[in-house]
Design a protein around this nucleic acid. Sequence first.
DNA 1: GCTGTTATCGAAAACGTTTTTAAAATTAAA
DNA 2: TTTAATTTTAAAAACGTTTTCGATAACAGC
Lengths: 336, 336
Amino acid sequence: MVSLKDISVRCGVSVATVSKALNGHKDVSEATKERLIKAAKEMGYFPNSQARALKTNRTYNLGVMFLDEAGSGLTHEFFARLLNSFKTEAESAGYDITFINRDMGSRKMTTYEHCKYRNVDGVIIACTDFSSPDVYEVINGDIPVVTIDHTFECRSSVLSNNEQGIEELVNYAYSMGHRKIAYIQGNKSAVAEKRLKGFLQSMSQKKLEIRSEWVITADYHNPELTYKYTKQLLENDNTPTCIFMPDDYSAIGGYNAIKDMGLRIGRDVSVIGYDGIAYATLVSPKLTTYAQDTEEIGVRAAKKLIALIEEPQTTFHEVITIGGSLVKGESVGKIN
Amino acid sequence: MVSLKDISVRCGVSVATVSKALNGHKDVSEATKERLIKAAKEMGYFPNSQARALKTNRTYNLGVMFLDEAGSGLTHEFFARLLNSFKTEAESAGYDITFINRDMGSRKMTTYEHCKYRNVDGVIIACTDFSSPDVYEVINGDIPVVTIDHTFECRSSVLSNNEQGIEELVNYAYSMGHRKIAYIQGNKSAVAEKRLKGFLQSMSQKKLEIRSEWVITADYHNPELTYKYTKQLLENDNTPTCIFMPDDYSAIGGYNAIKDMGLRIGRDVSVIGYDGIAYATLVSPKLTTYAQDTEEIGVRAAKKLIALIEEPQTTFHEVITIGGSLVKGESVGKIN
DNA sequence: GCTGTTATCGAAAACGTTTTTAAAATTAAA
DNA sequence: TTTAATTTTAAAAACGTTTTCGATAACAGC
């Protein structure tokens, strides 16, 4: 690989001036600056990122921390889309992505140690168990952090408007005539709490009865569990006319339960999902759901994290909330 | 961060000995080795990966090159699962993953230049346009490479048994009584070629008529296009009894087309997918498909790539083929 | 001319490792 | 004992950058 030294000998100039020329310092004349930049381009020079990082303590690498389990993480469409937009935005600013884990290779290391080992400039934490000690260690460390859908004190975060999203969905169901609404929710997390709060709020606002056996805690991304609870809800004598599912993916389980019972989705029972993944519009009948703006969430998270890295003094911590949009599918029928 | 020097002053020994002790060299006494390792652990030492990389030219980073477009890449379940298992295997060997692209930040760079800039030890190429100049440049470079589902001369690759997979599916359809079989295939790629070959072979082996208007080139991962072509196939007077789709995801488009025409999947028209993604078993009726062993493909690719990196002389190039398995869903009905 | 200021450049140190080479300490051989 | 062989340690160079500081040259004002 061609180095600064190669350029310096070819142009009869010192290594220092080449470095300064390429980095746009002012104490090198325009003439030589141009000459050196031209030579660098001709010779196909690219800085050695390791050497640069060693000197500057900046790797231009962002750590991504997420729950790395089967069925979650990369294969989770919400996360995949989020990561995709985060990655695109980061790359346009010159940053690469590194997945941060524990127990790399034979060495035992914590997630935080992994960050230190790779010297990531910042970390984004998403779709993970925010109560784990691994998260705690990173949050209390000295690396800039942005969290997704969870807020820590003195740390920036980007949130989807989960509370409002559910409220809009309840309002929509109400406007379609539904009064008997059940809610199968995801498991313990800040997101689940927010959504539950939104559900309870708008239900009581509409003066609708909230039956405790109609508020069920299942799991995200788990169609089997949703299948089971949906069946359970519909086997009783008094059944809801509309069921909220933990998310679009697990809503498929609800779909199957309803079909298996010989009922029609949108006619006999209405179904509402959450997320707005691709399948929501592919499945039949089309799923009514609330589309989270993963694109915007990822972009804003990246922008914020990079700002925290590059302008630490002028950047303040904030909680950014990104709105989504109601997607009217065909899974909610009209009742009169 | 604690460095070798910190350990050396605390233990009254030179930096060199600390380095050698921690790296298990033989020219340091057992006593001091133990002492230094213990001190390192106590002080929470982790090597500075940049400094090490600068000296050794080994970053313990693997580049991942893939088609980074909307609807492809990370949000593509096949790739996501592949990447997931590749990543897990790589990490257990101490390697991190870096996504390799072109045009990082403001600098214009090719994918290969990106590899050089980040000094990745090896590259895996998957789910991309293998005819692009970017791929060509990497293939002709001096970095160890493993390709997925495409073979280059003198380069190792891991292939899914696409040819055999389709053959098994044709045989299955045949065994269910189907004689009029249509094939909507993905677009130009080594995979599409292999599958087409498998299709034509087993069709002629069964002495089944191959109608040219029943072999349609659509696109992978494109339900809209599949929807269109499925409708087209079923609108004619002479219609196939079984339709092969490019993949499971686009098969949903076929499902919708059939439903929209008032036909029943598995009864009036049978449908066959390819991939074995999660939705294949969630959709109703369950999709008959061929499950690719993404887990195994990812693991083998990682193992091979790391072998090429760590034991270049004793490792030979090879083409590894990974078998999949037929998944009998409910989308293929019996004909007599 | 002389001095002081400014623009331009180079020398050298530093970042944290690894590795080579040489020195010191220990052991074995004579 | 002395010498030779071996083990153990240290010094120093190197990887490719960035950055500080000092040096030189040019130029202005007097």
